[in-house]
Amino acid sequence: MAALLQLDQITIRFGGLTAVSEVTATVQTGELVGLIGPNGAGKTTVFNMITGVYQPSGGRIQFRGRSTAGLRPFEITELGIARTFQNIRLFPSLSVFDNVRVAFHLHLKHAAIHSLSRGPKFHAEEEELREATLGLLKIFNLERVQNEPAKSLPYGDQRRLEIIRALATRPQLLLLDEPAAGMNPAEKVELMRLIQFIRDQFQLAILLVEHDMKVVMGVCQRIHVLEYGRKIAEGTPQQIRANPAVIAAYLGQESTAA
């Protein structure tokens, strides 16, 4: 069976700098995959190429057997890839409810003109979306703050809201960019539970960029490791933990001279 997401030798250069070099990786349907590496290894850049923010200078990206070359970010979301951002990017002035509601956009049957005519079908769909939005918020216990502006939420809730918003696009692949950043240990444990819950409940694949080893090792079935834009290892958490190249990348090489 073909992989859900296939990265084939993808490379991107910014001027003279090769930020990501010939990275090949796959994510299978329903799989929970980690993408790790030291700071500046190119993890977020890989995310930005998958989601169409950057066009790769070389190599191919295929999602569900379709090349994503030349597609704009919203078109890639339409194919079934949703993401969160390293620095939370909610719609700060919109309410919590509207942040989620707006992400149902791809599944809307009405367009600008129908908001003017406001016929029975329009109202029926709006009601449907209201319930779908509330349903999602309820699963994640955010329905009691649905009318608050998104920017007023505490940090951890903002992270969760960003994930909910991504889920509203009904993706088959969810990209999470450092969801544990800035969380305390208790919140991290909660997050691990949440990630697994989302995978099972929504039946999607998750690609997770994360610095926190405990989180990555705890939830991922398979892990890709990047260093200086190159892939240096791939395997199960046990294999990655024992991989000398990975240990060297994180802890530095043992000096042979001394």
Binding site: F74, R89, L90, F91, D98, V102, L106, A168
Partner: peptide, 18 residues
């Protein structure tokens, strides 16, 4: 609501399929 989302954050709006 998409108009407001575009005003708030264009990158995020595109990522949500707008």
């Amino acid at each position: 609501r998409g108009f407001l989302a575009v005003a708030d954050d264009e990158v995020a709006a595109e990522a949500m399929g707008l």
